[in-house]
Design a protein around this nucleic acid. Structure first.
Lengths: 334, 334
DNA sequence: CTGAAAGCGCTTACAG
DNA sequence: CTGAAAGCGCTTACAG
């Protein structure tokens, strides 16, 4: 790579000081600088193909205009859709995004945070995983600006933007009940993550409110490993009962995809014999035999708001804002 | 944010020079440094919670250990899956990834490249869009290490890792022909991008080789805007013929998703009346009435190889390597 | 075995 | 209206 041109190169060429070049190229002291000199500097910069060295600038200004984004897995459609929105919103404010996938592992996220902090990110948008409390407290102690997205931790006093998972779940189950279903199951992840627990709580609460049966074997909790087999097993158990279930709520997009794959091989009438509602959008829902109802997360708001909150807390004293957005229930079987 | 501890802080605390601290923390001159002093430096670094300032280091070493990744849209499953693989592979070599979505727009990619270069990325992995030739020549002229992924440009002499799209398409159509189909259509994007043209060429070539009819109205080219409607219109036209088509090749995952949505409302027997093959994997293919055959891209190789080629060309004199990987045809209807 | 010093490419008070 | 100079936090030849 040939040497890049620096402010000094321009200064020498034009015959002025580096200071002046810096002012002109940054549009500072506009009124006070000789128009002609300024123009000459600009022309020369263009001619020499000058490019600001952000690294040098960052070192001096202590600002990198970079946001770190940690999600569980960038290849998960939910996360990549979120990433795209965050990218666009960040770009509006002159920020670039570096990203990493934690695979829900504390160790990996620790490592990512470490790398990101070494790189002097201005702030972090973070879909934290289980048992991240200590890690988050540490970020707070270090006064690193960050905003949680999608996830939240009751014991940790920090900003977040997430779904109101309890209400979303509650609403979905009430809708199912309204359709006359009585034997309603749910498959969710076995996890202490609050947002996932809230989904389960909403499910139970809606059943209780309407005095419907809540059987513990109807609340299936699966591990993330071998998702496909786990969901399959859960479905089999649910269908094996003498009086089978007549509705099911899938607690996440990947569970739905796995569940639908299983059901697609079965001769059940959907939705007549089994009403299905899922969390999150996904292609699978559209292309199943009959379109599946789902709980639509306000992705755009999630992404945009998390960027806005983060930028707000960067620099300024951090006001803690916690947002739980409402979901929309998308009904396709009328 | 409270002041971070620097090498100087450690040096003062221990009572040695900054030089020495730098050496120790970077494991340089290992044999030549007093063990005890070294240990003391390490201990103090840990105690003061020292964190390398990568920005300062980068300014000095002229290396950021950062890769820029530009895809059309990070929320497209194909791209996000690729991004994940690139992330993991880059991480193995100590690189972090910053990303941006170009939306197939030259203007946006120009802007992203500009931003990335200002940030002194060490190299770029780029899924370039139409008419990018001049832009790429410019990168070459500036000696920016970069590798194209997924896309390639016949006139541009640079490294790339992509599918052998011609063969993939050819193979898929031969498979269709082997199934006894005679009236085979294809829907692809209207685009001069070489990899997309190669898919069309492979389709035509296979038909010709087997002396099958090639009707121009069977080769539908749609615009990326209003994909859904465009595909719908194309499908309607194809189905409207007196003797309808008996097979179709979808030229990309989004086209397949749109096409399947349309077909799912139709009372056609799949695959008996219409054999469907699609480029790329996607959930839709699994959950359609009957699983859809597809051309599987070697995503892992694409991602890993692009990182490897890039790292190879960073620093070293760039050897140009062009790779066209073979696709795998995944058959589900036996 | 260790340190003083230059320098990476910027910004910005300060002085004139 | 303009410039000399310090300094951001590192690395690294050079000297001893």
């Amino acid at each position: 790579m040939k040497k890049k041109t620096s402010l000094k190169d321009i200064a020498e060429k034009v015959g002025v000081s580096v200071t002046l070049v810096s002012y002109v190229l940054n549009n500072k002291m506009e009124g006070r600088i000789n128009k002609e000199v300024a123009q000459k500097i600009r022309d020369t910069a263009k001619k020499l193909n000058y490019r600001t060295n952000q690294i040098a600038k960052s070192l001096k200004t202590n600002k990198t205009n970079t946001i770190g984004l940690i999600v569980a897995d960038i290849s998960n459609p939910f996360h990549s859709a979120l990433a795209r929105i965050i990218e666009d919103e960040a770009e509006k404010f002159g920020y670039t995004v570096i990203f990493g996938s934690s695979d829900e592992s504390l160790k990996k996220s620790d490592k990512l945070i470490d790398i990101f902090l070494n790189r002097q990110i201005d702030g972090l948008i973070y879909a934290a995983s289980e048992n991240a409390e200590a890690q988050l407290e540490d970020l707070i102690k270090q006064k690193i600006p960050f905003v949680l997205v999608d996830r939240y931790f009751p014991g940790v006093n920090c900003s977040y933007v997430a779904l109101d998972n309890y209400s979303a779940s509650f609403k979905a189950v009430e809708y199912i009940i309204g359709k006359g279903r009585k034997r309603i199951a749910m498959i969710g992840y076995k996890s202490d993550l609050r947002h996932l627990r809230d989904r389960k709580r909403g499910y139970i609460a809606a059943l209780k409110k309407h005095k419907l049966e809540t059987k513990s074997i109807w609340m299936k909790e699966i591990k993330r490993e071998d998702e496909l087999q786990q969901v399959e097993k859960a479905m089999m158990e649910l269908m094996a009962e003498k009086t089978p279930i007549d509705a099911i709520l899938f607690g996440a997009n990947r569970i739905a995809t796995a569940g639908l794959k299983y059901i697609s091989a079965l001769p059940i009438k959907i939705p007549d014999e089994l009403l299905i509602v899922s969390f999150d959008e996904s292609e699978s829902l559209d292309l199943f035999r009959s379109p599946i109802d789902y709980i639509k997360q306000p992705l755009r708001e999630l992404g945009e708001e998390s960027v806005r909150l983060l930028l707000q807390s960067i620099g300024k004293k951090s006001v803690i804002t916690q947002v739980n957005l409402q979901a929309e229930l998308v009904i396709r079987n009328l």
